[in-house]
Design a protein around this nucleic acid. Structure first.
Length: 717
RNA sequence: GGGCGGUUAGCUCAGCUGGUAGAGCGUCUGCUUUACACGCAGAAGGUCGGAGGUUCGAGACCUUCACCGCCCACCA
């Protein structure tokens, strides 16, 4: 309870830090506070201290909070500081740097104070906790405590020490960040710097639009020392070096010391006298720069700035900055501000914000929290390539990564798969042939794998250029495993184990060539295993993959005809395998092409050896009408049959076909519903409508084939 | 309090400017097929968190609710 001067009244304030009352310079009341506003303009006497402090009206004082009146302590509270500034109140700092009371020799505190006799004795140099206890006791004994009640509130703690932090006044250096921010924002708006993924631009602007003056001085030991020197009268000399500071100071103090300019010149010329002058007259600021200030200079200070070095010329501005979202403001924005200020150009064209690896609970990993997944442990278990590939595969834009051991294991398997595939090519004499040109292949399988390789290369390249590393990883994974290994290597086995000849040697060269493309594509994702296969195991030897600046585009390599033909073979084999597994039939079966045209029949003959081997088929023949008990399949619009003889029962086959028919009908119904909707036909884009029509045609054709198969089945029955 | 993100198959996650849902792992069924069982072949599994709305058409766009998470600020 602070007594109001000249009346028996008190004004009651609430605080969780009673010791800060020593620094009170006012009590604030909301101007519309009916209960208290009559006190505005009066003077309160600060208990124990005896300082006369005004009761001021300020909307900051929330009538609903605390007692409705708030003590104003500008030196120890951010909000109070603002209120104090607006009302022109003095600043009374009562703490030292360790939050011990500093009252003796404290002019700001002693001015206008009439402290009780034992106050200085009991408080000066004491910790805030001890002071708090003493002050509360004194106030209680004087009947100035209205009530004490427990309250829960949040207080800031030092991130390392854990100590409760007390704001207090100090002199610091500030950068006018608001002015520097304008060109940086303009650069992003004008797309001179582009964020990927773009949603981070919002974060950038959110920061920059609300930017505050940037405190850049730090009271720590490590860092760039602030290049400022103080004279005895408080005059500040900011200079690039101590010599420059001395020169400036000399020029300044020559007058004061009544030295002639000539005498000043003598001092400047004599190193000894200059050093003595420096010792006696100027003192360098002991503070160092905020680490982010120094980091903000990184894009050009590392290249030799402020000298105009060749490196600076060549590499500034840089092409891309890859970093985490958590330092968009701390680092990225500040590099832009400094770069634009000192270099007058953006420091980088692209900013790729990568995913953050979090722990299994989704928390950010940090050294101080101790929840860091040790990459070395993961590498020990699965290998560096597996970990690296996993991170790339999971690095979808705009999402963080919760690292999963299972994924790493899966990609470890992928590395093993690649290793075994390379071993297979080696065993089969697939040596590199520098003269090999994939465009000149005679064998359709080799033209096909060249086509697929070029396609994969294009996909991976496009994904990397768009910073979609997960897409790039998925594309190369699919190509290596599901195209190269599952189909190409399987399809060429008879060629490789067959008689020597041009087909075989071409296939060997094509196989080695495709593997080389794979190693190049995969190298950024799995550097170790690819390098091993490229330079160590592969023959003849190559220069290290690492030295390859990038892979060739393979533009112009492609063969859509090969894609159609091999696609048909793959579909045929897959269909047979599928139905065979479904029917649980393991013996080799005869395959019949039912009433197919010559073109398809020729194709079937071309691939009969392959189909026999890969789909466990005993013979391939063409028939006008299948035997009873033939299992009929529709492959790309053609009916083929598996001669099951007595192995399948009619009812099961009937229901299988009926099921396929039903699926077909559902497809048709869906498309019909769309095409039957006049709004769809009228409003959907033409090509979408065309697509739907094609789908209907396809489905109807398929349905007709199934109907034909069913009819034949019934006839057989 | 302000801002941002997430909620899709049992699990971990993709899904571009709206056009009939995908991967890996796991599960199930078959395979000692001489590159690979860290493998091969096949299969099952989702009313895309709820409710409205826009649209010929919504996992995707809008509104709203619920839950989860992150960042920043403040706290008499």
């Amino acid at each position: 309870k602070y007594p109001i001067e000249g009346s028996g009244e008190f004004i009651v304030v609430a605080t969780t830090r009673p010791e800060t009352m020593l620094g009170d310079v006012a009590v604030a009341v909301h101007p519309q506070n009916e209960r208290l506003k009559h006190l505005i303009g009066r003077t309160a006497i600060l208990p124990l201290v005896g300082r006369r402090i005004p009761v001021i009206g300020d909307e900051y004082a929330d009538p609903e909070k605390g007692s409705g009146a708030v003590k104003i302590t500008p030196a120890h509270d951010f909000n109070d500081f603002e209120v104090g500034r607006q009302h022109g109140l003095p600043l009374v700092n009562v703490f030292d740097a360790a939050a011990h009371l500093a009252l003796k020799n404290n002019d700001a505190f002693l001015k206008d104070a009439h402290p009780e006799p034992d106050l200085l004795e009991n408080l000066d140099g004491k910790s805030r906790e001890a002071a708090r206890k003493w002050i509360v006791e004194q106030l209680q004994s004087q009947g100035l405590i209205e009530k004490i009640e427990p309250t829960t509130h949040a207080v800031p703690h030092g991130d390392r020490s854990g100590a409760v932090l007390e704001p207090y006044l100090t002199d610091q250096w500030y950068v006018d960040a608001k002015t520097l921010a304008q060109p940086a924002m303009a650069a992003v708006r004008e797309r001179k710097t582009v964020f990927t993924p773009p949603q981070w631009e919002a974060t950038f602007f959110n920061w920059m639009e609300n930017i505050q003056p940037w405190c850049i001085s730090r009271q720590i030991w490590w860092g760039h020392q602030i290049p400022a020197w103080y004279g005895p009268d408080g005059k500040i000399f900011v200079a690039e070096s101590e010599d420059d500071a001395v020169a400036d100071a000399l020029a300044h103090y020559v007058e004061i010391e009544e030295l002639t300019p000539e005498q000043g010149g003598e001092i400047a010329a004599d190193p000894k006298r200059r050093a003595r002058f420096a010792r006696e007259y100027i003192r360098r600021d002991e503070d160092v720069l905020d680490t982010w200030f120094s980091s903000a200079l990184w894009p050009f200070s590392t290249l030799g700035w402020p000298d105009q070095t060749p490196e600076l010329k060549r590499f500034y501005p840089t092409s891309v900055l890859v970093t985490g979202f958590d330092i968009i403001f701390f680092w990225v924005a500040r590099m832009m501000m400094m770069g634009l200020h000192f270099m007058e150009q953006v420091p980088f064209r692209d900013v790729y914000i990568h995913a953050l690896v979090r722990d299994e609970r989704g928390q950010k990993m940090s050294k101080s929290k101790g929840n860091v997944i040790d990459p070395l442990a993961v590498i020990d278990e699965y290998g560096a390539d597996a970990l690296r590939f996993t991170l790339a595969a999971m690095a979808a834009q705009g999402r963080d990564i919760k690292l999963s051991a299972q994924r790493v294991e899966g990609y470890r398997n992928f590395a093993t798969k690649l290793w075994n595939a390379a071993r297979f090519t080696e065993i089969n004499g697939c040596a590199r042939d520098p003269a090999f040109d994939p465009r000149g292949s005679k064998e359709i399988l080799n033209r096909w794998i060249a086509h697929e390789t070029a396609k994969a290369t294009h996909e991976v390249t496009a994904a990397i250029e768009a910073y979609k590393f997960n897409d790039a990883a998925a594309a190369i994974y699919r190509f290596v495993w599901n195209v190269y290994c599952d189909w190409y290597l399987e399809l060429i086995k008879p060629v490789l184990t067959g008689p020597d000849g041009s087909a075989k040697s071409e296939t060997q060269a094509a196989t080695a060539w495709a593997l080389d493309q794979i190693l190049k594509l995969l190298h950024p994702f799995m550097p170790f295993v690819t390098e091993e296969l490229w330079t160590v195991t592969g023959s003849p030897k190559h220069d290290p993959l690492l030295t390859l600046s990038r892979w060739p585009s393979l533009e112009g390599i492609g063969d859509p005809g090969a894609e159609v033909e091999i696609g048909w073979v793959i579909d045929l084999i897959t269909s047979i395998r599928s139905v065979r597994a479904e029917m649980n039939v393991n013996v080799a079966l005869p395959l019949v092409m039912i009433r197919v045209g010559d073109h398809v029949w020729e194709r079937a003959q071309r691939w009969s050896e392959f189909v026999k081997r890969m789909a466990k088929i005993s013979s391939v023949t063409r028939v006008p009408i299948p035997n009873p008990g033939t299992l009929q399949l529709i492959v790309r619009g053609e009916i083929v049959g598996l001669e099951l003889a007595g192995l399948v029962d009619l009812a099961a086959e009937r229901s299988r076909l009926a099921k396929e028919m039903a699926k077909c009908d559902a497809d048709i119904a869906r498309v019909d519903a769309k095409l039957g909707n006049p709004n769809f036909v009228a409003r959907a884009p033409e090509e979408v409508v065309e697509e739907e029509k094609e789908k209907r045609e396809e489905a109807q054709l398929r349905k007709a084939k199934i109907a034909e198969a069913l009819q034949r089945l019934e006839g057989a029955a």
